[in-house]
Nucleic acid binder design. Structure first.
Lengths: 221, 221
DNA sequence: TGCCATACTTTGATTAATCAAAATTATAAA
DNA sequence: TTTATAATTTTGATTAATCAAAGTATGGCA
């Protein structure tokens, strides 16, 4: 049985890989993401390699093997189902569920996860718009566009938030910018690095590109 | 912050104390209950004493201090609320909730526990009939009698099961012997070490005294 | 081509929790 | 009172995870 620490490394390697072009994750990015000393990451990754969860090439980086990928997807599934559960069933705010799920994903039994899955109606998407892998490890990533790369005057739907910092989520919620909401970009200013959006039947808000980049949207045909 | 291990020792010391007359728990009972080597228990208890959670007298035993008692009651509350939650909200069987709760009690945040408490209507009793301590650490133990010490021909109500082994609970469930059910002892045989009980409007079952002792009942006036 | 900054790995220690086995103390029996 | 047995503590090791700091490669720049 994998320890909580092992599970966290595997999940983080998976998440880091999503951010890059290739499929070899650097030691540095792992150490930074997990907030451990570089040497600690090296030691752990070597032991993950001994367990056949990853392939490790010194001075190059690490790549998940099938076992590891399966474990990562399982954890992602747990994490996202738990987040949805915390919002839908227990009524927590979406800004406070991430850290909670981070702990629970290592502890809930498969039996409990199955009950939660059924209770929620086998959902496909979590409260931040992240897709929930199936029990068999299938993950369907939708084709979404960052809000800052969107054209002006089109009707678009907020579909996914890629930053789960509590403060950012609270800001979005206060301004009605949650997944499902439809908006239009009414103005963009390259030099001011900002866009102005208008919520359907609602207010207008100005966003910097750093914030807009974290909001993924879908065009409404 | 106390580790999971520390929490488990504290809780176990509390539970062992309930089983005895005095309030000093022996090292041996702790080691046995937690399934660790005797020396391990000694080491840990000494460190609990350093943390001011217990008083430890070598070769004598250990007694919870106020801090420790508070922690134990907090854990008991979590454990029992979680058990009820697993049965009532997630629909698990009462025979499979103990081990699950054993893990979750160390991980769920106070915020989540409060949501669960509210969702369940601030319950006072868990699925096995164990009382749930209040958030302030109050615990009202009812005055219950072991079934094997009960008089014959009285109407009594099953109120609490003190053994949470899955197999025993499954046996009870299959025979309709769950908290809330009213029964009558229709026969007892000192020498055969058994009693015969009859469920109201239902079947008769014979129980050995070892099993009957684990079923606590209440007289119906 | 050679050097150097940066990224990475190694080394030596530390902490929490554990064990087996040896040493000690207390208890109950003779 | 002495002794044997049972309970407890000590000792010396181990495992998982971590750190700081010292050592080592590698890739780009001069």
């Amino acid at each position: 049985m994998a320890t909580v620490t092992v599970e966290n490394y595997i999940k983080q390697i998976y998440l880091e890989r999503l951010k890059i072009k290739g499929d070899v994750v650097s030691m540095g990015s792992i150490a930074t993401a997990l907030e451990v000393a570089p040497g600690t990451a090296t030691t752990m990754v070597k032991s993950l390699a001994d367990s056949e969860l990853v392939e490790y090439e010194p001075r190059v980086g690490v790549r998940l093997k099938d076992n590891g990928e399966k474990m990562a997807l399982g954890l992602l599934r747990r994490h996202r189902l738990i987040e949805l559960f915390l919002v839908k069933i227990l009524g927590l705010d979406w800004s406070e569920i991430h850290d909670e799920a981070e702990m629970l994903e290592h502890v809930l039994s498969d039996k409990v996860m199955e009950k939660i899955d059924v209770l929620l109606g086998r959902p496909k998407i979590d409260p931040h718009g992240d897709p929930i892998p199936s029990a068999t490890g299938m993950l369907d990533e939708r084709n979404l566009v960052p809000l800052n790369q969107c054209e002006i005057d089109l009707k678009i739907k907020i579909s996914r938030i890629t930053d789960q910092q509590a403060d950012f989520l609270k800001f979005l919620e206060k301004n009605g910018l949650m997944p499902g909401v439809t908006i239009t970009i009414i103005e963009r200013n390259q030099f001011a690095d900002s866009i102005m959006i208008k919520i359907d039947e609602g207010e207008s808000i100005s966003l910097g590109s750093a914030a807009a980049k974290k909001i993924l949207v879908e065009l409404i045909s």
